[in-house]
Amino acid sequence: MIDHVRDLASVRDATDRLLTAAAKLNNDSTAEPSRLPGWTRGHVLAHLARNADALVNVLSGRPMYVSGDARDNDIERDAPRPLTEQLRDVRESAERFAAAGTIPADWSRTVELRNGVTDSASRVPFRRWVEVELHHVDLGIGYEVEDLPEEFVQREIAFLTTRFLGHPAVPPTRVTDGTRAWSTGRDGEPEVTVSGSASDVVGWLAGRRDGSALTAEGGLLPSLPPL
């Protein structure tokens, strides 16, 4: 069962860790490339702030973004800002998201995200947790997939294997970290078994690792669609 209150607390903790780490940067280092192609660290921080506000929109019943172009333009506009402005924006937008999470509401209701994707409102805090944790890794400032909280890793593996379940481009696949196993890909008996540490598995599923540390039995390591 999803516990949105617990997830909101996890979002706060993850945001605090990110802000503490990012505070050690400077204006020059925020202009340097992040681990995301075409994005500087400033782009990552700007995206985190705008995503928090976008999820406030989702919880309020408004469109997540005015449009895809508006989303991209806002990130480009905000990316070059000085570090102090970036950190303040991430902090204040996080506070707005946290405040939205305290408003009495039916957390079982269905909400709409981008591109027609729908989900339970109760899962929105977890989706925000994903944004904060993975983009902390993307900043390339010493936080790695091995540093992700264990609970987060297990839930993100389950979330992403479910996301790729039934995807025509992914062969029927069994994924295991040696303790737990998940199924993903097209329907049918698993053609490939992918195994490795939980950190390497989540890094591969989330597009943050190339999968070279994983073992694929029964075939090649599947190529995953972009998130």
Rank of each mutant, 00 (worst) to 15 (best):
Arg127Ala: 07
Asp147Ser: 13
Arg77Phe: 13
Pro37Tyr: 02
Ser93Thr: 12
Ala22Thr: 01
Leu224His: 05
Ser108Met: 10
Asp147Tyr: 12
Trp107Leu: 07
Val192Phe: 05
Ala121Glu: 02
Ser67Pro: 08
His136Ile: 00
Ala198Tyr: 03
Leu148Cys: 10
Leu160Gln: 05
Leu8His: 09
Val130Met: 15
Val11Asn: 04
Phe97His: 04
Gly116Thr: 06
Ala100Cys: 06
Arg71Tyr: 08
Met1Gly: 15
Gly38Cys: 07
Glu32Phe: 13
Leu36Ser: 13
Asp78Cys: 14
Leu48Thr: 03
Pro190Cys: 10
Thr162Phe: 12
Thr15Phe: 09
Arg12Ala: 14
Pro82Gly: 04
Asp16Ile: 06
Gly68Lys: 07
Gly178His: 04
Val194His: 15
Asp119Glu: 12
Arg208Thr: 09
Pro33Lys: 05
Pro80Gln: 07
Ile75Asn: 10
Ala216Leu: 03
Pro37Trp: 06
Val11Glu: 02
Val192Arg: 13
Gly188Ala: 06
Ser195Trp: 07
Lys24Phe: 06
Val201Arg: 06
Pro104Ser: 04
Ala213Phe: 02
Thr40Asp: 04
Val111Ala: 01
Trp129Leu: 13
Leu148Asn: 03
Ser108Asp: 15
His4Cys: 02
Val130Phe: 07
Arg180Gly: 13
Ser93Cys: 07
Ala121Met: 00
Glu144Arg: 15
Phe164Thr: 00
Gly188Ile: 08
Asp28Lys: 11
Tyr143Trp: 09
Asn51Phe: 05
Phe126His: 14
Ala105Cys: 05
Gly166Cys: 01
Ala52Pro: 01
Glu76Lys: 15
Ala216Trp: 09
Leu8Ile: 12
Val117Ala: 03
Ser195Ala: 12
Val44Leu: 12
Ser223Gln: 11
Val145His: 04
Val130Ala: 02
Gly101Trp: 00
Leu113Thr: 00
Arg208Asp: 05
Glu133Val: 05
Asp3Ser: 01
Thr110Ile: 09
Tyr65Arg: 05
Arg12Phe: 07
Arg96Asp: 12
Thr110Arg: 08
Pro171Trp: 06
Pro171Asp: 04
Val132Thr: 03
Trp107Ile: 02
Thr179Ala: 07
His43Val: 07
Val5Ala: 13
Ala94Gly: 15
His167Ser: 12
Glu85Lys: 14
Gly219Trp: 04
Leu87Asn: 02
His43Asp: 07
Ser212Ile: 05
Pro190Arg: 06
Ala105Asp: 13
Pro149Met: 12
Arg155Leu: 15
Ser60Pro: 03
Val58Thr: 00
Ile75Lys: 08
Ser195Met: 01
Ala9Met: 12
Pro168Met: 09
Arg81Glu: 11
Val202Glu: 11
Ala158Leu: 08
Thr162Trp: 14
Pro190Met: 06
Pro190Thr: 09
Thr15Arg: 13
Ala21Asp: 13
Arg88Glu: 13
Leu45Asp: 08
Ala206His: 14
Pro171Gly: 08
Ala198Thr: 14
Ala206Asn: 13
His4Arg: 00
Thr161Ala: 00
Met1Tyr: 10
Thr20Trp: 04
Ala9Lys: 10
Ser93Asp: 10
Thr20Gln: 14
Glu76Val: 10
